[in-house]
Design a protein around this nucleic acid. Structure first.
Length: 468
DNA sequence: GCATGATCATGC
DNA sequence: GCATGATCATGC
């Protein structure tokens, strides 16, 4: 007789844990509380008491399993090494169900991390075997009424774990270099290190630097979760219904053996492109029997897929998971860069209420970019010069904040003819970006203005691609 | 038909 | 030749 007889599941058996957990599917958090025997859950008997506390999902779920909240860096189900995590889904207008947020994992202890080895690091010990609980988020309803939709165990497949390891090493190196305050989401592919606790939680000490760094936690990027969601939905609901859940795509690296000794994902991708450096678009197209017109605006994407061996109708799984933005950069024959880089149109009514960190443009600029760089030859044919991964440095991102705040303030005041120009800033500017001059967007003042967007200055892009 | 990445066109 | 405004091309 074990001491766990009172538990409705066997804590030593992962499939028993999973089966018990999956009984929650289709119930709301409120229903789970009601079905309880009254002995567990919310201490004062008022389920609403900490609804605003996001941790309630963890609290409820942990209570369902009779595991009490802790902040010890050990897995929740100690006997099996399973860590319990819950995360919201959202339904898009087209009916697709996708992840709403990234999955935040353990807090990073800067001082401890620098002394760890990957093979027995605390991240791996705690997060390699997860019990995932996905619930459907809905606007304007009580969090207690969110309904649980997917529950299953999860381990990262070896190919992904390889990339996660490289990410972990990269984050560790930045901390070893005394640059914990410069960590950015765009540094890494699947495993991020996002700030946790906000500015109010103050700064942490870090090794090898006197500069305080915001507290950060490891996280799995939001887009990556869509692939987990698809896989779990396929298991639970079957392949047809799973079409509506998350994403499916095609991998660049099908077998882990495709990596050369010590090679990272970035290096593998660049290696595959190198054979095509100097070739014209027409030559690459004929090599692969591609038929898109030379004027196609997303030729960088089409060519990239072909070179990486991805079918044209599929998207690139690793790029999707890592939230990598593919961008074309065209260099003139004389080496100058004519064009700046545009981003989606500014939503005037939305921007006035959004801090930089919550804004659309921040969400893009913090990402990792894949530049496909073409140069015009004597006959004005575009030739692939090279490719590179890039992400904006922390200091430049802070400089962009000033452009953002200036723009936001002017929109608030209803000033639409005095945004930062390319001549007045060294990183970015704001300028029109619509289908034509009659392509308008409503303003907070109720008027309509031509669509505009944030841009990165051509000169700034030029410096970035020169640095590499 | 809209959103968006990319590039064209014009005037100084 | 550059700054800025305007528009094209494509996918969903």
């Amino acid at each position: 007789m074990s001491s766990f007889d009172y538990l409705p599941y066997n804590p030593n058996d992962s499939s028993s844990i999973r089966d018990y957990a999956q009984r929650m599917i289709d119930s709301s958090f409120r229903e789970i509380i009601r079905s309880a025997d009254g002995n567990f859950f919310l201490k004062d008997g008022t389920p609403e008491y900490s609804v605003n506390n996001k941790g309630i999902y963890g609290l409820i779920a942990e209570s369902y399993f009779h595991i009490y909240q802790n902040n010890i860096s050990k897995p929740d189900f100690i006997d099996t090494g399973i860590e319990l995590k819950s995360s919201p889904l959202k339904k898009l207008n087209n009916g697709k169900i996708v992840s709403k947020e990234r999955l935040v994992l353990s807090i990073i202890n800067y001082n401890d991390l620098v002394n760890e080895q990957w093979d027995n690091c605390s991240f791996l010990r705690k997060n390699s075997h997860l019990l995932l609980i996905f619930y459907l988020w809905k606007k304007d309803i009580s969090p207690l009424d969110y309904r649980i939709k997917l529950v299953d165990l999860w381990r990262f497949p070896p190919g992904d774990l390889k990339i996660i390891k490289d990410d972990w090493v990269k984050i560790q190196k930045k901390i070893k270099d005394g640059k914990a305050h410069e960590i950015s989401d765009g540094d890494t592919l699947f495993l991020g290190a996002c700030t946790k606790g906000g500015r109010s939680s103050g700064l942490r000490v870090q090794p090898n630097s006197l500069i305080g760094a915001p507290q950060r936690a490891f996280n799995i990027k939001q887009k990556y979760l869509n692939f987990i969601i698809h896989a779990l939905a396929e298991r639970w609901y079957g392949p047809e219904i799973a079409d509506k859940w998350g994403y499916k795509a095609e991998r660049i690296v099908k077998e882990i053996e495709e990596y050369q000794e010590g090679e990272t994902f970035d290096e593998l991708v660049i290696r595959r492109f190198k054979k095509f450096y100097g070739k014209s678009i027409a030559e690459i197209k004929s090599d692969y029997g591609l038929t898109f017109p030379d004027t196609s605006k997303h030729r960088a994407y089409l060519i990239s897929k072909a070179i990486l061996g991805i079918k044209q109708e599929n998207s690139i799984e690793e790029f999707e998971k890592a939230e990598i933005e593919i961008k074309t950069v065209t260099i003139e024959k004389n080496g100058r860069l004519k064009e700046s880089m545009s981003f989606p149109a500014i939503k005037y009514k939305q921007i006035i209420n959004q801090d930089f960190e919550d804004s659309d443009i921040y969400d893009i600029l913090r990402r990792r970019f894949f530049f496909v760089i073409f140069q015009k030859d004597e006959n004005k044919n575009l030739r692939l010069k090279r490719v590179m991964f890039w992400n904006m440095g922390a200091d430049d991102l802070q400089k962009y904040r000033e452009i953002y705040e200036d723009t936001r303030l002017k929109i608030r005041k209803g000033i639409y003819d005095d945004f930062i120009k390319i001549s007045s800033g060294d990183i970015g500017h704001v300028r029109p970006h619509g289908a034509n001059s009659r392509d308008l967007m409503e303003t907070p003042q109720g008027t309509f203005e031509i669509k505009r967007s944030f841009w990165l200055n051509s000169n700034y892009i030029r410096l970035q691609i020169m640095d590499d």
